[in-house]
């Protein structure tokens, strides 16, 4: 799952995740201009509560991530927004460990940012842009979680299969939700998308 608990991943993966996260945070904080702060806070809160919306998939259940939405609206500034949400989820809900925060942040925020930046190029058609960002973010997170587990000595295919089963329905749900939200924002509040003329 996206929130890896303590004690599962190995030390090199922890260090790599932490390094990626520090880099992403440095880039993100520079892009976090005062005008973007309210938007970042809103998306941070959305990310924080979205993890409580569950739906059952097979024997397990999966929760929303909403990384794609943060990525498309904030770009690199999604990093600090997701970081705040993740820290609070770990502290208040016990989602994911404390030592692995760097790995979890990299696994969620990096694909979210990259997919969001890709989505921003397609903003001429907002719904398509939203769907691409959401699906890219979820798929990227699934691959990165499977990689983190594989590099820690877990079976890549076992983890990959378990993740694919739960993440493909999640991709569909998030794509529809994000497409609807970006579509709505483009209509009623286009300045929130920061379209350059």
């Amino acid at each position: 799952m996206a929130h890896i608990p303590d004690g599962v991943v190995s030390v090199p993966v922890l260090v790599a995740g932490a390094a990626l996260s520090v880099g992403g945070m440095a880039l993100g904080l520079r892009r976090l201009t005062p005008e973007r702060l309210p938007k970042a806070a809103m998306l941070s809160a959305l990310f924080f509560v979205a993890s409580l919306v569950h739906f059952p998939v097979g024997v397990s259940s999966v929760h929303l991530l909403m990384g794609g939405l943060a990525g498309i609206l904030l770009g690199w500034a999604a990093f600090p927004a997701i970081a705040v949400g993740l820290v609070l989820q770990a502290a208040l809900f016990g989602f994911g460990g404390v030592v692995v925060l760097g790995v979890n942040l990299a696994n969620i925020a990096l694909p979210a940012t990259l997919a969001g930046l890709l989505g921003r190029r397609l903003l001429a058609r907002p719904a398509v842009a939203g769907a691409v960002a959401a699906m890219g973010a979820v798929a990227g997170t699934a691959v990165m979680v499977a990689l983190s587990l594989a590099l820690s000595g877990r079976e890549f295919l076992v983890a990959g299969q378990a993740l694919a089963v739960t993440y493909i329905p999640l991709m569909a749900v998030e794509a529809v939700a994000t497409a609807a939200m970006i579509g709505l924002l483009a209509k009623v509040k286009p300045e929130s998308l920061e379209l350059r003329p």
């Binding site: 702060l37 806070a41 941070s44 809160a45 609070l88």
Partner: peptide, 20 residues
């Protein structure tokens, strides 16, 4: 916990905005 978390997020970003 949920309400407290959202409050913390508002406070944190508010404090950052103040500093900035």
């Amino acid at each position: 916990d949920i309400v407290g978390g959202i409050g913390l997020i508002i406070g944190l970003f508010g404090a950052y905005a103040w500093v900035v």
